[in-house]
Simulated assay, not measured.
Amino acid sequence: MSSSPIPALIPNIVLMGHVNAGKSTLLNALIGQEVAITSPIAGTTTDTVHKRMEIIGVGAVNLLDTAGLGDTTSLGVQRLQKTLQSINQAHLLLYVLDASCWYLHRPLKQSALPADATRRIMVFTHIDQLTVDQRVALQQNFPDALLMDYQDPQSIDALLRRIAHRLQREEKLLLDGIALPHRHIVHVIPIDSEAPKGRLIMPQMQLLREALDRHLRSTVVQVEELQTLLDHDPTIDLIITDSQAFAQVSAINQQRYPLTSYSILQANQKGDLAFFLQGVQALATLPPQSNILMMESCTHNVNHEDIGRVKIPKLLQKQFPHITFHFDFVMGAHMPDNLQQYDAIIHCGSCMLPAKTMHHRMDQARRQQVPMLNYGLFLAYAMGILEEATAVYRSAPLI
């Protein structure tokens, strides 16, 4: 099976560093356009600037220029919080440092830099202010760093190549760990009121693209077309469906072929499936008055069929009629600091988040001893098919 790197979503490349380190100038140099305001005045970038570009060998990426660290203005604390939120969503960090005072940055090698070395690139700017001997000393002290000369196109090319190399070490894929002897998967994609007009949702597109890159055969059907397909094609390795159609698809399939959902594939790809399954088990011990945190990674309007705000709360109440539930709904990048106020966290499939962010959220839940699971696992549990829906992961502790 091919192990070619396939980005799970458009990667976020976050530029971070102290005020006046040259982050905005670096963003403009990478883009080749004046998209960020640059100035010698400290704190020019007051909010995160987003820009998308294409990088050869990677494809589309999101560049995020953040407010500088060490901002002592009255809004500095708020800007720092925005910067930290961006860092938590980063696939790759460009840590930008001023080469003219590089000797001040020696402690950063062990302390302030993000722990995962594969997720960061140190970039020194303003090297035109250094003598030849100072450049040599800088490179000796930081051998893995890039020295950026904006007047030299090769300098920008070197950084883009380094970025491409790092991003090609992307998180594991949706189908990793699943045996596919016939190299044929079936995508069951319901078209309901929540389906976006004229396009597929992110996990459906991701899986189709991954199947193409792996040279798998994909058959795409709606629920009402599945029976005919199963009756006439014995070469199916896996059926993947939207979690909301689990019950219908399971009834049609009758356990002839392995079945799972996009959300459960994402639980294994970006999270810790065993930890999430422990979260499912913990539902049986919820107290009579339970506070539930519902988390979604993207922001959208809500209708009567919304899975997070309508369907799952109703199913949870039906599953545990003796419990009085209170739900808090959080969308986007923010996660509450105090999780101990909640008895469980039910998270979306996280198609818009990098694995790094999901692991950060899981670590917070672990430290505060709050059970956590995702939409797909809960829906499989509520429909009584959790073991069937997770059977493709034989190493996971099935319930």
Rank of each mutant, 00 (worst) to 15 (best):
D213R: 12
F276I: 03
S193K: 10
A195Y: 11
A195L: 09
A267R: 05
T219V: 10
D231Y: 07
P288H: 14
L293G: 04
P203I: 02
Q244R: 12
M205F: 02
Y257K: 10
D231M: 13
A284L: 13
A267M: 07
Q255C: 05
I236V: 15
Q204F: 03
A245P: 04
Q248F: 03
V249E: 03
L283D: 01
D242L: 00
A251M: 11
I189H: 10
G279T: 14
S297L: 09
R199G: 01
P190Q: 10
V223P: 08
L229K: 02
T299I: 15
I239G: 03
T235N: 08
H215A: 08
L265F: 11
M205Q: 08
L273K: 10
E224T: 15
P287T: 00
V221K: 11
V221E: 11
E224G: 14
S297K: 11
T241V: 11
I191T: 07
R256I: 09
L283A: 04
T219Y: 06
Q266R: 09
Q244P: 02
D192Q: 07
A274H: 00
E224D: 15
A251E: 14
P234H: 12
Q248P: 04
T299H: 15
R214T: 03
K197N: 05
N268W: 12
T260M: 07
P287R: 01
T299Y: 13
I264H: 00
L216K: 02
L207C: 00
A211T: 03
A274V: 00
I191A: 06
F276T: 00
V188P: 06
A247M: 05
F275W: 12
L216A: 05
R209K: 14
I292A: 15
G271D: 11
A245H: 08
L283M: 11
A282F: 12
N253T: 01
L212Q: 14
I292M: 14
S193V: 07
H215Q: 14
L212H: 13
L230S: 01
P258D: 15
E194D: 15
A284M: 14
Q204I: 01
I236S: 05
T228A: 07
A251K: 13
E194C: 13
I191E: 09
S243Y: 04
G279Q: 13
